[in-house]
Lab assay of single mutants.
Amino acid sequence: YETDHQDYCEVCQQGGEIILCDTCPRAYHMVCLDPDMEKAPEGKWSCPHCEKE
């Protein structure tokens, strides 16, 4: 199925295993987040940009 999420990391602009924000189209590698994540979040997750809003 098609999503509106970007298929690359917002921080480093590379693809790969990325996690998707449930609020906006941004996507991130877990290691590119500050602080980085050990494992993928369970349930709904909002990226740092959305958390600030």
Rank of each mutant, 00 (worst) to 15 (best):
C50V: 02
E10I: 15
E2A: 07
G43A: 13
K39G: 11
V31A: 14
L20G: 14
E17R: 08
C24M: 01
K39E: 09
M37A: 09
G15R: 13
P48M: 13
P48K: 04
C32V: 02
C47L: 01
Q14F: 13
P25V: 05
Q14S: 05
Q6C: 06
H29D: 04
E51C: 06
I19Y: 02
M30T: 13
E10S: 12
G15E: 07
W45P: 07
I19N: 09
C32Q: 00
D36W: 03
H5P: 14
C24N: 03
P25R: 10
K52C: 08
H5I: 13
D34M: 06
D34G: 12
E42F: 04
Q13E: 10
G15H: 01
C21H: 01
P41A: 14
M37T: 04
E2S: 15
S46C: 12
Y8P: 12
H29F: 00
E51T: 07
V11F: 15
G15K: 10
E51V: 06
I18K: 04
A27P: 05
D7P: 04
D22S: 05
C9L: 01
P35V: 10
M37R: 12
T23W: 04
D34K: 04
D34V: 09
P25Q: 10
T3Q: 04
Q13I: 06
Y28P: 01
K52S: 14
G15W: 06
M30S: 06
K44M: 10
C50Q: 01
P35I: 11
G15T: 11
G16T: 15
L20W: 07
E10M: 02
E42S: 08
G15S: 11
E51Q: 03
L20S: 11
H49C: 15
K52T: 13
P48G: 09
K44W: 13
D4P: 05
C21Q: 02
T3M: 14
E10W: 12
E38F: 14
E51A: 11
E17P: 01
Y28W: 13
D7R: 11
T3S: 14
K39R: 09
P48Q: 08
E51M: 10
G16R: 11
C21D: 02
W45H: 08
E42P: 12
Y8D: 05
H5M: 15
P25K: 04
C21F: 00
I18T: 15
C21T: 02
E51W: 04
P35W: 05
D36E: 14
I18F: 14
